[in-house]
Nucleic acid binder design. Structure first.
Lengths: 150, 150
DNA sequence: TTCAACTGTAATGTTTAAAATTACAGTATG
DNA sequence: CATACTGTAATTTTAAACATTACAGTTGAA
């Protein structure tokens, strides 16, 4: 599974978590644990799809514009990772005499495409808001365990 | 997505297609388009799960013992590819002060685990028999287009 | 009873894809 | 016009996937 998808979700949730909903690629990269160039490349894609606003120049960065409750993981998957589920590895050989060897690749491709649709269907029920809520639930849990320790 | 899964499905369908339901790792590797050592490693796993019989020594090889209608792609996925859907890449850092950075990995892990379950559910509705039928459907299509050419 | 044809598996080498890094042009701000 | 950003191409590094070699163990047949 494509890590760009994970980075994008993390970045967007991070932005959503900030009061100003804004951060530079350096701040995001630091929080995510990757390189700022990678973040910029991914955020570029999200900007083209209208999820974030970009401001170049000093004091610039990325600002979350999307409605957290409206954007689902399926949207992000489609923007950044569509097709990544289908393996590049091909089995068999279309030019072969054997029916199995010559057609297995097409058959498997169909199965994987359909599997990916199911995956997207599952992702379409998870919004960025849901993810942020899960993070907040962790926060409460952490606070509880700290209280117990004291 | 793990190519061992694809190789296993291809190999099993290939065996099912043969009158004797039997072939050596060399024959299978040739049909699949990979190396025989790779096939042997994968078939070893399938043997341990009881899908094929193995016969060492001269004239040996692998024989399909499983019921085509009973074995689903979910079975094969669980034997060979379970967990491969979850990305190894981790975002954030659990030791971090920020709630997002410290918990994003756990949250994403949960989402991916659940996604994998959905995937398995989808695969559980596709039997090896179904795959072989799809291959046979290709065969008929090929025959038709040959007739048209004549 | 030994040779040829197999499997099983570990070790190694090769290739490819993923990720990080460097580099630099373009843009806003003070 | 210096500083702090984005955008993107090119390059290097790293890690994973895959192929290959090597060899011990097994079986059947000449």
């Amino acid at each position: 599974m494509n890590s760009e998808f994970t980075i994008a979700v993390h970045s967007l949730v991070f932005l959503a978590y900030l009061p100003e909903r804004m951060a530079s690629s350096d701040m995001i990269a630091d929080n995510v644990g990757t390189h700022s160039v990678r973040v910029r490349k991914i955020m570029s894609g999200l900007r083209r799809s209208g999820l974030v606003d970009t401001r170049e120049g000093s004091g610039g960065g990325y600002r979350l514009t999307a409605d957290l409750q409206a954007v689902t993981l399926a949207d992000i998957y489609q923007i950044l990772a569509k097709g990544s589920f289908i393996p590049s590895w091909c089995s068999g050989d279309p030019g072969r005499d054997c029916v199995v060897a010559s057609n297995m690749n097409d058959v498997m491709f169909g199965i994987f495409c359909s599997a990916e649709k199911h995956l997207e269907e599952y992702f379409s029920h998870i919004t960025l808001h849901d993810v942020l809520e899960q993070i907040r639930a962790c926060e409460e849990k952490d606070a509880d365990s700290n209280n117990l320790q004291q």
